[in-house]
Design a binder for these strands. Structure first.
Lengths: 182, 182
DNA sequence: AGGTCCATGTACCATTTGGTACATGCGCTT
DNA sequence: AAGCGCATGTACCAAATGGTACATGGACCT
């Protein structure tokens, strides 16, 4: 089995089972290899964790890149942006927030993650806000609030599992954030 | 050392060091006792974790109770509410999000936490929104979005440590959410 | 055919883990 | 003083952990 497929399976394992109790052996069993192989490919448990985090970061960048590459009208790009934020948060489920909590604690395997979780998304969003007609001096706070609200809703969704309620709230979010203010 | 003080110290230890690598022995050393004592008082490691979670839940309820008990005008009660939400999220720092992530995964020690993190706060907030003049049919989604935005901002704050930026956005949040709409 | 490199399996190691058995003390009641 | 129950210390256990040593296979090159 290739290193790449092992890594992908490991990420999936983490998404399903969380990081807390993930021993090399349990991961290995879950992805169909031996713990010896994981060490062989990733050097150590920390090395594996770091690679998993790197994968998550890359996925975030990839999801955003598609938005930036398009040449859509502002309104549609706006909508696409929020859909990508949602995907980027939900794609790994609770793992997103578990990793974020680790990043807040500066755990060794989350080195660049802390900055990435915000900085990858915020500058493009600010730009988007400005193009949508929000005054340039208000755009940063506005964007930050929007990103925060969005993630808070996804936090809510993952906790309650109540998609309908979030959809409702999400509609309100759209009314507040995807249209130019005033 | 009493069970209560041990528990308080354990919560503090978790807040500082996270849950992931918290062995009975490391906790014991950190709070100045032996791992034998922790088992004696809490039955098992899981028992200790469950008590820690229960403590966090109780703290959430306590912080909210003060708001509900007051007889302030709506605007001031509103402001107090948001201050308490902030405190309740930040009081244990990253632990709030780490525990939340565990709750999303239904880990055994987080039984009632999942519902509590939302349900303790949402009904009073809906009530508050209605009294602030928001139409009753819009209040649930409105409240949910407000709570989500608030937590998303605190998520942002804990990740970046950039208080100023969050304060700015928070001001915008106030403009949007603490005043009656329309 | 021989050699070389990567992938993999087996076996092992010291350490740490959660948990238990048992002894001991200390304060309380009688 | 005797007895009793709670709190605590010491010592231990089997299991699991991350990591290593070493052998082995098998593909590919010369």
């Amino acid at each position: 089995m290739s290193r790449e497929s092992l890594l992908a399976d490991a990420v999936e394992h983490f998404a399903k089972n969380g990081i807390g109790d993930a021993s090399l052996r349990s991961i290995a069993t879950s992805v169909g290899t031996s713990h010896r192989m994981l060490i062989y490919h990733f050097g150590s448990r920390e090395g594996l964790l770091a690679e998993v985090v790197r994968t998550v970061e890359q996925q975030q960048r990839d999801l955003l890149a598609e938005v930036l590459a398009t040449d859509l009208p502002v309104a549609e790009q706006n909508e696409l942006f929020w859909r990508r934020v949602t995907e980027a948060t939900l794609i790994y489920g609770p793992l997103f927030f578990e990793l974020s909590a680790h990043a807040m604690q500066d755990l060794p395997h989350t080195e660049s993650l802390k900055a990435d979780l915000i900085n990858v998304w915020l500058p493009p969003l600010i730009d988007l806000c400005i193009r949508a007609g929000i005054p340039a001096d208000e755009a940063p706070a506005y964007a930050r609030l929007g990103l925060a609200a969005s993630r808070g809703l996804l936090f809510d969704l993952l906790l309650t599992g109540d998609r309908a309620g979030v959809d409702e709230a999400s509609a309100l979010l759209n009314r507040l954030f995807t249209l130019p203010v005033r």
